[in-house]
Design a protein around this nucleic acid. Structure first.
Lengths: 233, 233
DNA sequence: ACCTGAACACCGTTCAAGT
DNA sequence: ACCTGAACACCGTTCAAGT
């Protein structure tokens, strides 16, 4: 075996810097950017830079920024846990689903901004919906109630978690403690809203994260109780 | 009484074009723009133009765009109906509140985009919260449960209505009917998600707006049933 | 088939300057 | 006290041109 002559001129040109961009690669980079800097931090130019590409190269793989966001949005649903519809009991399955969805949203706070903007049509979200509906159908729900019940749980989780994210972000950005905020508000408006501030005071000495978790679980049990009352009606 | 000599030069200059801008005036114009063109349609420049002012004049009255959005967000809560906490029964009161909040959001679709972005701290939202909490307290809820129960209802309404708005907007923008969309999806993915598409088919011949209203009411009754089970526990 | 850069039509916000 | 215009540092997207 003889060593071959080697130089730039003899070596075949490699496929230009990796096989070029792929949609998958773009979405992964976008997710990184979203997790690191939020929706506001994701721009086509920054994303291009992170991929060592021109900003406008992305438009070959994706029609526009909204489509890119649809892809990102759908991607996170792979992490949401839905127990096996064939074997799990519907109530604990719905409960783990709800907590799993909540923690996914809290892990990717930018989701809170997309829920009012992106229609959920991706395969991962559809798959989650389908599994939950199978769960409900096996539980004894029938006809329209299958999707109504499913929608109720999803609505509750999102509605509870979105403002939760908004709070965490504003607290974080302003570097303020919930207690401080309460003190500021209290001075100006406590007299006008007695019941509201009474409730604030009740939670003053509690860990706000723990309070939010309790609040979430409380409402979830309400919803599940309401469903349970209908399951055999 | 003698008629006085009058000319531009004798008459005192009026305060320049109205008493200038006021925060209230700015917010009203911003709401008009939001209702007409949505969140994307509201820019400081367009808003300035609508007020016959330079775009940057607004910054004298308002720190930045996010603060302006906070003001807009709070303003719509004046339309949300909460029956008198001293006389109304909690359950019908919560039901009218829920439907009223839903229709307010549907009337101002841009709200769906702000819920994940703006912390609700304005007087009108606080006032609504306070009235509901008084309602719950009179109903027999105690301590933390007062705010947990209130939060549950608000979360449900928002979580159900936000995606509802997103759907209406994407349908509207793409000028597509729900049936058409279903046909498109069905071709590619119906086999993968049998239960989901079975549900779609059940609603195929129904008025989608009516279906959404039914779905909303179904979940609301679930939530209220769950609360009712706790009211005297 | 895939990527690029220049260019267009926008943004929010700051700030010195005006009245 | 209130308003202005110019300027800065960004945007998303189109498109002719390159390989």
């Amino acid at each position: 075996m003889t060593k071959q002559f080697s130089s730039v001129w003899t070596r075949e040109e490699r496929p230009p810097k990796a096989p070029g961009l792929s949609r998958d690669q773009i979405v992964r980079a976008a997710l990184d950017l979203l997790d690191a800097e939020g929706v506001e931090g994701l721009s086509m130019r920054k994303l291009g830079a992170r991929l060592n590409a021109g900003a406008t190269s992305i438009y070959w793989h994706v029609a526009n920024k909204d489509e890119l966001l649809e892809l990102c949005y759908d991607r996170v649903w792979v992490d949401v846990v839905v127990l096996d519809p064939e074997t799990a009991h519907w109530r604990p399955a719905l409960s783990t689903f709800a907590h799993s969805l909540r923690s996914t949203i809290l892990r990717h706070p930018w989701l809170a901004r997309l829920l009012g903007r992106i229609p959920g049509l991706g395969p991962n979200l559809l798959s989650v919906s389908d599994r939950i509906m199978r769960l409900m159908q096996r539980a004894g729900f029938e006809g329209l109630e299958i999707s109504f019940a499913t929608g109720t749980v999803m609505a509750y989780v999102m509605g509870q978690t979105i403002p939760e994210v908004t709070w965490r972000e504003t607290m974080g950005k302003q570097e303020i403690q919930p207690g401080d905020l309460m003190n500021i508000l209290e001075k100006t408006t406590a007299d006008d809203f007695p019941e509201l501030f009474a409730a604030f005071r009740d939670t003053r000495d509690m860990d706000p994260l723990e309070t939010q978790r309790m609040s979430f679980s409380y409402g979830l049990e309400c919803v599940l109780d309401g469903l349970e009352a209908r399951v055999n009606a």
